[in-house]
Amino acid sequence: MRQLKLIWDFRGPDALKIAQHHEIHLKEFIALQDTNLNITGYQELSPMHSIAFMVVDEIEMKPIRDALKPHRGELYIE
């Protein structure tokens, strides 16, 4: 089954802190929704751009996307 990486972009001098905090909320959502996967994280792409992300099975993507409104997504490859 394909897995998708849902991504939230944060920009500005506080982008990394915001991405770290957003990951906390993603973990809370996973706990409440009892989703199949629990892969989350954050990454600093540059000093002014960081992301938070969550990996979901393709069949779970639409309801999670509609609930959390990620900025973009991509195919997840381990």
Score class of each variant (00 low, 15 high):
residue 66 D to T: 14
residue 2 R to V: 03
residue 15 A to G: 09
residue 61 M to A: 13
residue 37 L to N: 05
residue 5 K to F: 03
residue 61 M to Y: 10
residue 45 L to K: 13
residue 46 S to W: 04
residue 75 L to C: 03
residue 42 Y to N: 07
residue 39 I to R: 00
residue 70 P to T: 07
residue 6 L to Y: 11
residue 61 M to Q: 11
residue 30 I to T: 02
residue 48 M to N: 09
residue 13 P to M: 09
residue 16 L to N: 14
residue 77 I to H: 13
residue 58 E to G: 06
residue 40 T to D: 01
residue 33 Q to F: 09
residue 41 G to S: 02
residue 23 E to N: 05
residue 71 H to S: 06
residue 21 H to P: 01
residue 27 K to P: 09
residue 57 D to C: 03
residue 17 K to P: 09
residue 57 D to E: 13
residue 16 L to D: 14
residue 14 D to M: 09
residue 62 K to W: 10
residue 41 G to M: 04
residue 10 F to D: 03
residue 31 A to C: 07
residue 21 H to F: 15
residue 20 Q to W: 06
residue 58 E to D: 12
residue 49 H to G: 03
residue 65 R to S: 11
residue 5 K to Q: 15
residue 17 K to D: 14
residue 15 A to C: 15
residue 73 G to E: 15
residue 51 I to G: 03
residue 12 G to C: 08
residue 56 V to H: 01
residue 11 R to S: 15
residue 29 F to E: 09
residue 29 F to W: 13
residue 24 I to F: 09
residue 61 M to W: 11
residue 65 R to G: 01
residue 78 E to Q: 05
residue 68 L to G: 04
residue 14 D to F: 14
residue 31 A to K: 15
residue 57 D to Q: 10
residue 47 P to S: 01
residue 18 I to H: 08
residue 6 L to I: 12
residue 62 K to I: 08
residue 26 L to A: 05
residue 67 A to C: 06
residue 37 L to M: 08
residue 3 Q to H: 10
residue 12 G to Q: 12
residue 35 T to D: 07
residue 41 G to Q: 03
residue 23 E to W: 05
residue 32 L to K: 15
residue 41 G to Y: 06
residue 27 K to A: 08
residue 53 F to N: 00
residue 59 I to F: 14
residue 64 I to G: 00
residue 54 M to A: 01
residue 46 S to M: 03
residue 48 M to A: 07
residue 22 H to I: 03
residue 64 I to Q: 01
residue 7 I to A: 10
residue 50 S to Q: 04
residue 36 N to P: 07
residue 64 I to S: 02
residue 37 L to P: 07
residue 45 L to I: 09
residue 41 G to F: 03
residue 41 G to H: 05
residue 27 K to R: 15
residue 69 K to N: 11
residue 52 A to G: 01
residue 21 H to C: 12
residue 36 N to R: 15
residue 65 R to E: 13
residue 59 I to N: 14
residue 56 V to L: 02
residue 6 L to R: 12
residue 3 Q to Y: 11
residue 53 F to C: 00
residue 11 R to H: 15
residue 18 I to F: 07
residue 31 A to M: 11
residue 45 L to V: 08
residue 43 Q to V: 00
residue 19 A to Q: 04
residue 72 R to N: 09
residue 48 M to R: 14
residue 20 Q to M: 11
residue 63 P to F: 11
residue 56 V to C: 02
residue 8 W to V: 10
residue 7 I to D: 08
residue 76 Y to N: 00
residue 17 K to R: 14
residue 77 I to E: 14
residue 19 A to G: 04
residue 72 R to C: 10
residue 27 K to L: 12
residue 24 I to Q: 10
residue 11 R to M: 10
residue 20 Q to S: 10
residue 60 E to S: 05
